[in-house]
Simulated assay, not measured.
Amino acid sequence: MKTLEEWFAEYAVSHQNRTNKKIHYICVPAIFFSVVGLLMSIPNRGLISLVHSDNFLYVNWAVAALILVIYFYLRLSLRMAFYILIFATLCVIGNFYLAKIGPLWLISLIIFSVAWVGQFYGHKLEGKKPSFFKDLQFLLIGPAWILNNWFSQPK
């Protein structure tokens, strides 16, 4: 199994262009946020009966999926799993309140689509294919790479 540093090194190869990096700093979190919103939009009747609660904030398909996502990161780094847990929690809370404004699935779909257009534009500038074309696990490495860059920047 690769270490987190090995994943980051491989991911960084197709993320050297300054503009592409800036685009990723916006679009990768937006995609993560929108996927959480899309998952929260799935009716959760099965989950409600399973856990005997109907609290939409924590009984939804996004939280169920994020448990698996956190496990993926725990296998790589306790610190990164903690960062992702904080970010994922903020995404769930943000989507909870976004759902009060309008149809969450539609808002999430728009964010998702716009962010992916940005991602592909960034890779066009970079001149390299997105990493996930090589390995789908890079879809989970991208958010960690962004958080790692945010938290490791000199002050």
Rank of each mutant, 00 (worst) to 15 (best):
Y71M: 11
I107Q: 12
W61C: 03
A81Q: 10
P143R: 07
A99C: 00
K124V: 10
F82G: 15
K22T: 04
S152Q: 11
L47S: 10
F32Y: 15
V92H: 03
V28Q: 01
L104M: 11
P154I: 08
L50Y: 14
Q16L: 02
L106D: 04
V35L: 14
E5K: 15
L147G: 06
S108W: 05
Y73F: 12
T3V: 00
S131C: 08
I48D: 09
I70L: 12
A30D: 05
I141H: 05
N148P: 01
I67E: 06
N44A: 15
R75G: 09
L98N: 07
G46K: 11
Q119H: 03
I70F: 07
D54E: 15
Q16H: 10
W61P: 03
V59E: 14
F72L: 02
M40C: 02
L66V: 03
E126I: 06
Y121F: 11
A88G: 04
A88K: 00
L104E: 08
F32P: 08
L139Y: 14
R79V: 13
V63L: 13
I111T: 02
H123P: 10
K155W: 09
F132N: 15
V36Y: 01
P154H: 10
N20L: 05
A62R: 02
G94W: 09
V35W: 13
R79Y: 14
K22Y: 06
A30W: 08
S108I: 03
I67R: 02
I86Q: 07
L38T: 05
G37Y: 03
F87Y: 13
N149E: 13
S14N: 11
H24I: 00
I42T: 05
A88R: 02
W105S: 08
W116M: 04
I146E: 09
E126V: 10
K124G: 13
L76T: 05
F138I: 07
V35K: 00
A30T: 15
K128M: 09
F96P: 01
H52M: 05
F82L: 15
T19N: 06
I70Q: 04
V28L: 01
P103E: 11
D135M: 10
N17P: 04
S14G: 05
I48M: 15
V59K: 06
A115Y: 13
L104Q: 11
